[in-house]
Design a protein around this nucleic acid. Structure first.
Lengths: 143, 143
DNA sequence: TGACAGATGCAAATCATTCGCAATAGCATC
DNA sequence: GATGCTATTGCGAATGATTTGCATCTGTCA
């Protein structure tokens, strides 16, 4: 995927433009995030970053994640397992289906559901800022 | 609402049938839950229960909540504010719209969305066990 | 190259929740 | 109604994820 490099560059530009220092640790974390195509939690990202540069601390991982989340560069998800999981925010919006047996996360998107949500909120007098749709399911047995 | 008394009785019967002791503390917590028509967290429930019977501890509130959740008598929700909120499980299934400014929780239900979710899961080869749909929004300005 | 504000690592602090343990109290039995 | 066994309780300590205080370090820009 060349998308990873683009992603990394986007992170980089984004921080630069905001006058935020591009430290060695941040570079490593940005790289790890850019390469991630799963939904890692803070500790997993810390492990991946540490493997590249041992000077990266868990605190900095948390601080950087918060920074990127605030700038809208990544998304934080709170699935039902307690900790937060992160994902690049440059992809098209989608929802998640979590496999209850394996913990696997499958992404999907339904235009119809998006539209219905907006309609429902409007009826209730609200504008949706964001939403969360998670399906928890089991693989359908093929009998 | 006379529903509260029925609810309380249902909790009571449920625990009794399972051979679980009906302690003074549990009675108070069951009552508080039966009376709740909002989505209180553990600490809020603890405060309400303490007001009735000071001998109720936070630990017991947590233990009782877990007990009732496991027995399917109440539902646990993990909105984006970190802690768990609880709600009676005898009401019709519904989803939630959370007011980002006030924290208020509005319940709604859409048959269409329910159906679409099942369709999507089926296409991906899954059966939905449960799902979570939360809309986070702001009151629409009336101009 | 120097200066300084922003960033870092570490350890300690939070916050919600759980757990260990000795003391207590349901509840079935006598 | 008393007795005994075990589930349950309150307390405080432990946990796990995340945040924060602080002394030290390091980008960045002049």
């Amino acid at each position: 995927m060349s998308g990873e490099i683009e992603r990394y560059e986007r992170f980089r530009q984004d921080l630069k433009a905001a006058g935020i220092r591009l430290t060695e640790q941040r570079k490593v974390i940005l790289r790890v995030l850019a390469e991630a195509d799963d939904h890692p939690d803070a500790h997993a990202l810390f492990l991946r970053a540490s493997a590249i540069d041992a000077s990266v601390s868990l605190s900095t991982v948390y601080r950087t994640l918060k920074l990127l989340e605030e700038r809208g560069a990544i998304q934080r998800h709170a699935f039902d397992d307690g900790r937060s999981r992160f994902e690049n925010n440059d992809v098209e919006h989608h929802d998640h289906l979590i496999d209850l047996d394996t913990g696997a996360v499958i992404e999907f998107r339904s235009e119809k559901i998006e539209r219905l949500q907006a309609e429902i909120a409007a009826e209730l007098g609200y504008d949706i800022i964001r939403h969360k749709l998670e399906l928890y399911g089991r693989r359908r047995s093929k009998n």
